[in-house]
Design a protein around this nucleic acid. Structure first.
Lengths: 214, 214
DNA sequence: TTGGAACTGGAACGAACGTACCACTCGGTT
DNA sequence: AACCGAGTGGTACGTTCGTTCCAGTTCCAA
């Protein structure tokens, strides 16, 4: 039996829209959804196949094992999320006040806790599983490092006198607020509490837009 | 077939050291260990029985279903952890400088990431699963609320002008630092980064011991 | 000492699991 | 037209799962 990767799929980042590759992408998307709302504990090959509307046999063709599928799904998620985070912080750099910065971060977290909740839950499923699987841990580390560098640059532009520590704090606050509010339905007062916490954090760290001007 | 709870086990918080109750406690302890190092996905009744050194049949006697067992294990964990957190912050109140406070928190996180790593991983497994199970979510909410109140009191004593927000920030930073460093082996430089982040957070929030004296 | 409830542990059930298999269809090259 | 590898999908294997059952044992009250 032949496996994909022998011809066009051979490059490091396979194009997923070629013949057959569409299915591979659909499988990974389905897996991310299932992980988000049933957890890794509820993730079965059959559940993925059903979610993707594909026969069970298709999964074995594109992925050697379930663990391989999980790894590729995680990689896909981090690739996608990197863009989202980058976009969120790109808007920040042009902000004039600490409140504007906090507002961007509030919107980012709010989106994760509402429309993108499934995706956010999947992310933490992966992070926890990373403590047990070295292959996932490598992805986590690379992902976290990229984040910290990006946020560090932003902090630098906002006038931080210790960008490395500030990015560590900001990333921790974001992750912590997400985790702490995941098991609660997100009502307006909670969103306000998150906004207040972010404002105070940004303000007290002395971060403000256009710091390079004066 | 009779179930426990018909006699001495009937009270709300059953004493686990009575006849047979020793076994129930052993099962919950075993479950917490298995969840910590195999995850909820790797948690099976057989794995718990093996970890506890008990026959499979024993589990069905003390717990109606696997989900019941998981719920009780979570409750046990939060009860235990509440004491630990309380102790960590009790030491804080007598500290004189922001650095002392940060040091307490650093030690707390360090302990979680090293000796108590299994327990910490289990905690986040529970938190994520809480997004899917209302019964676990209730425990999470109560647990988080208790934490915030306690930390709020501490922040108050340390001179905070907004204890509620400060406790939200501090809890988020702690959770975030834990999550962000779970998939990486904890080396001394990482510990130092955590300490630095905590010092800066506490300092910038204007928290200091003996604030009531001045 | 006897009765009954609490407790034990091994065996067994049907269901769901990951994976492998294979006859089949399709598209492009020779 | 003949061919071959890529892609397909239904089936089936062996394993592990949660749960149930029950004959047997231990303990305490009567």
């Amino acid at each position: 039996m032949s496996r994909p990767g022998g011809s066009a799929q051979q490059r490091d980042t396979p194009v997923l829209t070629e013949r057959g590759g569409v299915r591979k992408a659909a499988i990974l998307e389905a897996a991310l959804r299932v992980i988000g709302d049933k957890g890794l504990a509820g993730l079965s090959m059959r559940a993925i196949a059903a979610e993707a509307g594909l026969p069970l046999g298709a999964l074995g063709y594109y992925f050697k094992t379930k663990d391989d599928l999980i790894l590729e799904a995680f990689e896909l998620h981090t690739r996608r999320e990197a863009d989202r985070v980058l976009a969120a912080f790109a808007g920040v750099e042009n902000g004039d006040h600490a409140d504007d910065i906090a507002e961007h971060l509030t919107a980012f977290i709010h989106h994760g806790l509402t429309e993108a909740r499934t995706s956010l839950v999947a992310e933490y499923e992966f992070l926890i599983e990373s403590t047990r699987r070295p292959d996932l841990a490598r992805v986590s580390r690379a992902w976290r490092q990229a984040l910290q560098i990006q946020v560090g640059h932003v902090a630098s532009r906002l006038g931080s006198d210790d960008p490395e520590t500030d990015s560590e704090i900001i990333l921790a606050v974001i992750a912590g607020l997400e985790i702490d509010h995941l098991s609660t339905p997100l009502d307006p007062s909670t969103t306000q509490a998150i906004r207040t916490a972010l404002r105070r954090t940004i303000t007290r760290l002395g971060l403000r837009g256009n710091a390079a001007r004066h």
